[in-house]
Amino acid sequence: MDTVIIKINDERVEVPNDFTILQAAKKMGIDIPTLCYDERLESHAACRMCVVEVEGARNLQTSCSLKVADGMEIKTHSERVIQARKDILDLLWANHPNDCLTCEKSGECKLQEYCYKYDVKETTFEGKRKNYEIDDSSPFFYNNQNKCINCGKCVRVCSELQHTNAIGFSERGFNTHVSTPFEIGIDNSVCVSCGNCVSVCPVGALMPKSKEKFRLWETKKVRTTCSYCGVGCQMDLLVKDNKVVGVQPANGPSNNGLLCVKGKFGFNFINHPDRLNKPLIKKDGQFVESSWEEAYGLIVEKVNNIKSEKGSEVFAGFTSARCTNEENYLFQKLFRAGIGTNSVDHCARL
């Protein structure tokens, strides 16, 4: 890989020649704000938050799209750049409901974060604001275009990564908004409810229909592996008060930040009231709750009785493709070492 030497904020740095300015800055630990950037997507260069000053260029340049060149001199936080970012935030705010107090995205909203960082305390513009009906047709998420900042990440994730093309931009100019073709609503569209659009939305426009009220800062994230199919998507469980309240995709090697509807939205079984919470023993055809000791005792007694009466070969166990490796290991060990039979199988074939 060939490298080039550039100067960012007067500091020289050597970076690969296919880097964008944004990547180079990141490497140097310089934080350039972005709203429409996602490293998995083609650069869109629409939010203009990542603009920087490049020596010799007439206009400010978007660092997400401009590749470095040898000798380039870049200013990422000059007065001119900061003023431009402030103005852009000011403009976005002017067309955004000022409802952070009650917005569920509060705390992880990029617009909120950058307005805070760049000291934009109110909008200086008045005038027309969006006024769209909320599309709540999907059982899994809302599309509230009044909060949308048109970064287009949802549209591009849907078309470039998910390749479902359920949503796109409708109308033009100030009236540009994200919707399904002919405004038929998400639930009537070709949407497969993967929620990958929801996961990338930087503001509160696409939000999961949550059963719980929570603020992101009240939750802890637990990285884990999805328990549905065999793709092994990596994801973060959002946990509040001993409850899983949401799922966010992680950048695992097999899923690259994507999930499907089951992984993203299919977690409410965890807290479901039907969950078994005590051992049950069937007495006279009815299940009766028991203690673990009673249940264990009964199982051990039956095993010992049947084993002494008929030997080990009348035992069989179905282990589970749903359980962990460790549990499968122990299951077969229990049958082989504890009971003495190899009749262990699972539903690999189903």
Partner: peptide
């Protein structure tokens, strides 16, 4: 066209 913020807004 509505793509970039400064022009659209």
């Amino acid at each position: 066209c509505g793509k970039c913020n400064p022009c659209r807004e």
